[in-house]
Design a protein around this nucleic acid. Structure first.
Length: 450
DNA sequence: TCTGGGGTCCTAGGACCC
DNA sequence: TCTGGGGTCCTAGGACCC
C-alpha cells in the first residue's frame, strides 16, 4: 500500500452496449443486450436500461429475452468497433502515465506515480480524474467510464465500483479500512460463488468479518495462496504493481454448437478449423507452444480437457489438429458434444532471427484461408444466415445501416449512423444484391478529423 | 431453447531425478 | 525388504475474471 492515492482504475460503463447506443441512435435510452443471440448464447453486456429489467452479464440470452420488454435490442458483438473505441481510451490513459495495465478491453489500471509530475493530493487526483472522464466522453462520442483512485490496485478497483455508472471515487489514504470493511466479501477480486459460499458457512459475509478470521483458518478454507491473499486483502494490504506488458501464456479457440454433435468427421473438421485459427494467431504473435490441449463439453455440461506436451514447440495448425484429433478419439464423443476447444500453451517467443528468415512465414497459407472460408460457409448456410443482429451493412441506394433482425428469407435493416437522427427501418430480401456487409461507422464529426 | 469465449492462477498426484 | 526428501515436469481439474 502506498502513502498516496496514485493508482487509478478505469472501468468503462456497460461498454459494448454503450458503443452500440452511440453508433445506433434509435437505441439510445432503450434496453440493449449484447452477446450470443443463438439458442445457447449468453449476455456479454446489458445496457443500464436492460439491467432495470433484470438482464445481467453471463445470464443466458433466453432468460434475458424473457425478462426484457418487446423492442429490446439483442445484438451480436461488433468487436472491431469495440476495439477501436478501447484503443482511443487506452491512448488517453497513456497520456497520464507510461505505466498503463489494460485488464481487458474495457478496464485498465494506471500508475499515476510513474507519470509526469502529477499532484497526488486527493484534490489533485480528483481534478485529474474529472478531466480524464471529460476527455474520454469527448473522444469516444459519449462512452462514459467509472474511475477509482487509491493507494493500491485493490482500493482503486473498489473505488471505481462504488458509484457506477459515470462514477468518480478517490479513497483518501488512511481511510482504506473504513471503505473496505462494510462491503460484502464478494466485492473483493477472487471471491466468486464457491469461495463466497464457503465463507458464508463460517459466518463471513462482510470484509470486516473476513478480517476477523485467522490466517490458518483462511488457508484451511481456501488453500494456501488464495487463503493468504484473502487475509491480506481484508486488511487492505496490497502491493501488486501496475504492470504494462504481460506475456501471453496460452492461445485457444473454442465453440459451443447450436446442437450437440456426435459425428466424428464433422468434429474433426471443426478441430481443423479451430487449429487453423490458433496457429494463425500464434504466428501473428511470433509465438509457438509445446502443449496442445483439447477441451470438450458433453451433452450434460460435464467438461474435460486432454493435453499432450511435445518435445519441441509448434505453431503448425496441422500438427496441432492431428494431436487434438487423437485426443478426441481417446476421450470419446459418447452422448454428444456441445463444445469443442483447441488450445496451445507453454509458449515461447521465436528466436529473433527466425522472424524474417522466410518471407512466407507470416502469411497464412492457402489451405488455412480455405479452411476459414469453409467454416464461414458452414455457418452461413442459407442466404438469410449471412446477416446477424447488430451487424453493420450498407445498401447501394439506402446507404449505411445495421441489421435489426432476419428470418424467412428477409432481413430488417435500420438506416442510421452515429451522426444521424434515428433512421427508417426497411425489410429487404436476404439475398438483395444491393445489400452488403459494412464497416463500423465513424463516430467523430468530420470537423474533428486530424 | 439453462449455462459464451478468452484467458489466468492454483492445487494435487504421479513420474522421474538426485 | 520397506518406504527420506526435495525439485521439476506433466496432466487434469477447478475457481475466477471480464
Amino acid at each position: 500500500m502506498r502513502r498516496e492515492a496514485s493508482v487509478l482504475h478505469l472501468d468503462l460503463d456497460a461498454f459494448f452496449a454503450a458503443v452500440e447506443q452511440r453508433d445506433k441512435p434509435s437505441l439510445r435510452g432503450r434496453p440493449v443486450v449484447v452477446g450470443g443471440t443463438g439458442g445457447r448464447g449468453v449476455v456479454a453486456t446489458a445496457s443500464y436500461e436492460a439491467r432495470a429489467y433484470g438482464a445481467r452479464s453471463a445470464m443466458s440470452t433466453a432468460e434475458a429475452r424473457r425478462r426484457c420488454p418487446p423492442g429490446t435490442a439483442f445484438l451480436g458483438g461488433r468487436f472491431g468497433a469495440y476495439r477501436r473505441t478501447s484503443d482511443v481510451v487506452m491512448e488517453l490513459l497513456r497520456e497520464l502515465s507510461p505505466l498503463v495495465e489494460p485488464v481487458s478491453i474495457d478496464e485498465a489500471y494506471v500508475d499515476l506515480a510513474a507519470g509526469p509530475g502529477h499532484d497526488l493530493s486527493v484534490e489533485g487526483v480528483t481534478a485529474l480524474a474529472r478531466r480524464l472522464k471529460a476527455r474520454i466522453a469527448e473522444a469516444t462520442g459519449g462512452v462514459t467510464g467509472s474511475v477509482g483512485i487509491g493507494s493500491s490496485k485493490l482500493m482503486a478497483k473498489i473505488g471505481s465500483d462504488l458509484e457506477k455508472p459515470d462514477g468518480l471515487v478517490v479513497v483518501a489514504p488512511g481511510t482504506e479500512l473504513d471503505v473496505l470493511h462494510p462491503l460484502p466479501v464478494t466485492r473483493l477480486g477472487g471471491v466468486g460463488p464457491a469461495t463466497a459460499e464457503r465463507l458464508r458457512q463460517v459466518g463471513v459475509a462482510t470484509v470486516a468479518q473476513l478480517a476477523a478470521k485467522s490466517l490458518p483458518d483462511l488457508v484451511a478454507l481456501a488453500g494456501r495462496a488464495h487463503g493468504s491473499g484473502l487475509y491480506q486483502l481484508a486488511r487492505a494490504e496490497d502491493d501488486r504493481p501496475v504492470v504494462a506488458e504481460r506475456e501471453a501464456k496460452s492461445v485457444s479457440h473454442e465453440e459451443t454448437f447450436e446442437r450437440d454433435l456426435t459425428d466424428l468427421a464433422e468434429l474433426n473438421r471443426l478441430i481443423d478449423s479451430m487449429a487453423t485459427r490458433v496457429g494463425a494467431r500464434l504466428r501473428s504473435s511470433a509465438l509457438s507452444g509445446r502443449t496442445v490441449t483439447l477441451k470438450l463439453r458433453r451433452y450434460d455440461f460435464t467438461t474435460l480437457t486432454r493435453s499432450q506436451t511435445l518435445p519441441q514447440p509448434t505453431d503448425d495448425a496441422r500438427q496441432v489438429a492431428s494431436i487434438a484429433r487423437r485426443l478426441l478419439v481417446e476421450a470419446g464423443t459418447g452422448g454428444g458434444l456441445r463444445l469443442l476447444g483447441v488450445g496451445v500453451s507453454g509458449l515461447s517467443q521465436y528466436a529473433q532471427g527466425d522472424l524474417f528468415a522466410d518471407d512466407d512465414a507470416d502469411a497464412p497459407d492457402e489451405s488455412e484461408a480455405a479452411a476459414v472460408l469453409a467454416q464461414a460457409a458452414r455457418v452461413a448456410g442459407p442466404a438469410d444466415r449471412r446477416w446477424w443482429p447488430g451487424q453493420d451493412v450498407v445498401h447501394d441506394e439506402l446507404g449505411p445501416g445495421w441489421v435489426w433482425g432476419r428470418g424467412l428469407g428477409r432481413v430488417t435493416v435500420r438506416f442510421e449512423g452515429p451522426l444521424t437522427p434515428p433512421g427508417p427501418v426497411r425489410t429487404l430480401a436476404a439475398d438483395d444484391p444491393a445489400l452488403h456487409p459494412g464497416d463500423p461507422p465513424d463516430w467523430r464529426p468530420p470537423t474533428m478529423e486530424p
